[in-house]
């Protein structure tokens, strides 16, 4: 692999209202001295889609999973994650509250072995929403927002495991947005899906930006350029370039980014 100067970076701060930002985030796995993620400082604009791209092992998933403290059990995360003027990467923070505001959807669809509606109502109940009607209302709205309602509205009591992969993934999105989060993190949500399901998913995500801030990790550069407003390029645990998506793909400032988006990488 070609070596690039990792200190050579170009990172902008979006002029829009910022929903979430990180300052010098470092991630260490296990007892490693070597950081898997170094000095990541990014700001994510509200009601926009930001894409995180980069080769496998570049640290983009690690970074994403740190944002809602999901790495707590397996890694040490240093630095600041600012959300609503609060550093949520502090030991004093109630991580369960954080995760209610910052939802997440994973690479592989992971519905619970419960019915479709229970998949959504389960966390609502745990969060203390005792009103049945309110819960059912949320099932309907979230499934509609995730563009799944029409396909499953007659089978809400069927096992979620009987759905197709694409449907399961949209159910997982519905499950996440039923909690009414501010921010939605998506870790390669389309990697296990076929092209038609992927297109549906992208349309859904676009529509969701009316109410949610979305940060998405993707392997697929076309996908990043189709849906995102901003794009960050990750390389070997560093954020190399962060700018508006058009600029990243058309006039990248950094050599590594240029090589990656033109396919001359590695």
């Amino acid at each position: 692999m070609q070596t690039y100067d990792l200190s050579d970076t170009h990172i902008v701060t979006p002029p829009e209202e910022i929903a979430l930002s990180t300052h010098q985030l470092q991630v260490y796995y296990g007892n490693n001295r070597q950081a898997s993620m170094t000095d990541a400082s990014l700001s994510f604009p509200r009601f926009q889609i930001t894409a995180l791209i980069g080769a496998s092992g570049s640290g983009k998933s690690t970074y994403l999973r740190s944002l809602n403290r999901l790495n707590d059990r397996i890694a040490r995360v240093q630095g600041e994650i600012m959300y609503r003027n609060t550093n949520i990467n502090s030991p004093k923070i109630n991580v369960y509250e954080v995760r209610k505001h910052i939802g997440m959807v994973f690479q592989k669809p992971n519905p619970f072995a419960k019915s479709i509606s229970e998949n959504i109502t389960f966390a609502l109940k745990a969060a203390g929403i005792t009103d049945r009607r309110e819960r059912h209302q949320r099932v309907e709205t979230s499934l509609k927002e995730a563009a799944l309602w029409d396909e499953v509205k007659d089978d809400l009591n069927k096992s979620a495991l009987a759905l197709s992969g694409g449907q399961q993934q949209r159910l997982c999105i519905a499950r996440a947005i039923a909690m009414k989060p501010d921010i939605l993190l998506l870790d390669e949500p389309a990697s296990a899906l076929d092209p038609i399901s992927t297109t549906k998913l992208e349309v859904t995500l676009k529509a969701l930006t009316q109410k949610y801030t979305i940060i998405i990790v993707t392997h697929n550069m076309q996908q990043a350029s189709r849906i995102s407003a901003y794009t960050a390029f990750f390389h070997l645990g560093h954020v190399t370039e962060y700018d508006q998506t058009e600029k990243i793909f058309q006039t990248p400032k950094i050599q590594a980014t240029h090589d990656y988006v033109t396919g001359n990488f590695g």
Binding site: N68, E97, V98, R99, M104, F106, F112, A123, A126, A127
Partner: peptide, 11 residues
């Protein structure tokens, strides 16, 4: 992935 699903929902 089931554990992650639960955690990510704030459970």
């Amino acid at each position: 992935t089931q554990r992650e699903a639960g955690m990510a929902l704030g459970l």
